[in-house]
Design a protein around this nucleic acid. Sequence first.
DNA 1: ACCTGAACACCGTTCAAGT
DNA 2: ACCTGAACACCGTTCAAGT
Lengths: 237, 237
Amino acid sequence: MTDPGTTMPANRPRRGRPPTSPLTPALILETARALVEREGPDALTLRRLGTELGSNHTAVLRHFTGKDEIVLGLAEQLIEEALAGFVPREDWRDTLTALARRVRTACLAHPAVAVLVATRVSRRAAEFRGADTVIGALRQAGFGELDAARYYRVLADTVLAVSSYEASVTVLDDEARRGDRMAWQREYLAVSPVRYPHLAAVAGHLAAIDAEDQFETVLELLLDAVELRALRAARER
Amino acid sequence: MTDPGTTMPANRPRRGRPPTSPLTPALILETARALVEREGPDALTLRRLGTELGSNHTAVLRHFTGKDEIVLGLAEQLIEEALAGFVPREDWRDTLTALARRVRTACLAHPAVAVLVATRVSRRAAEFRGADTVIGALRQAGFGELDAARYYRVLADTVLAVSSYEASVTVLDDEARRGDRMAWQREYLAVSPVRYPHLAAVAGHLAAIDAEDQFETVLELLLDAVELRALRAARER
DNA sequence: ACCTGAACACCGTTCAAGT
DNA sequence: ACCTGAACACCGTTCAAGT
């Protein structure tokens, strides 16, 4: 991408320019994200990041206390993108479905970032706005405070876990594409029908399963069951 | 710890003994697992492993092609432990519940191993026997081949994802216990009631949620919905 | 056959020195 | 105030040399 050329002619972050290096947290995060997306999670290195920014590899430590904080910044960026401009639907179930799809979409749009961040995210990055929306939807469904809290954590954790799990599989397929994925498909197809009769019987279907379909199924199962409990909870009051 | 001094005086793997170093894949894996459990995922280093085994840090490369293969070995060890001695129950739902609990228990018994392995696991480590059991249970429930394959992948992936997610939180809490977890609990309690009314209303309940309870809820929700579909599928045939 | 030791090309972080 | 450059204590992997 070329420099868009803003009205002020100064402030161009060309490679290897010490004179006026702008080096802001936002620029660092953006560069880090681009690097990770281009070359995978392992490419995020203070030294690589330094050359990418055209500065000394220790310069970023003036804006972040360490590499960990950069990863945390990427996590917030990801959640931010997932929630940007979201407005709750009328129906509570539509709200939860749309929100879950947004989380998955963001994770799959930047799978390497998602993998990097998955183990580091802790819940604070899940952001108050998302939590408030989910809990609001659950109370709208008819749950009391305690149940709303419980099912919020169940749904949020499961959607985050499943999304980053899927992202990690995507990254694996990308970087070690010597066929880890193809390997298990072939192995499953060649499985012994006498030792594993059930597996052998359905092996042909296994490879054909669509990832998006699978996510939708998880979501439907969870929300079907939650809806059932909501109706029961409403009836009991 | 001092040497216990077994009955057979030979064959004692004391620290730093080159003479007769047994150095088998099994010993390497066992040492690696102990190291990771003792000092966390980042402690698994060929050099650390070498000193732990009392040998040169490149010696293990005679038994594993690289560090990656060691991690894969740990993954298989973990799944192996989860499935060891398992026999299906009479009721298909009991079978699936017991199996899911075993996976979670194994992940929480060795959370650092689970984290290390989570992103590397690919599906081949999920083992044929576990797959066969799950698919068998689903067919017993009344599903056809295609649905049994679908729900197997949905359930297996979700349980694995949620279990390793929980393990990663455990490890985070352990190693960065400067209070990442406590931090978000305090932040949630201090949240603005006008901007996030729903969140503020239930914040008190959030911290009290039990992790085991949460896993059980995920499992119940999924299996409730699956059971419903099984009944529907059986009726249509 | 298996292991060692040196070497190579990397890491994150600290810190005195520059401007 | 912000950045540089050297230094420190680490990495995984390769490869000739030993036994």
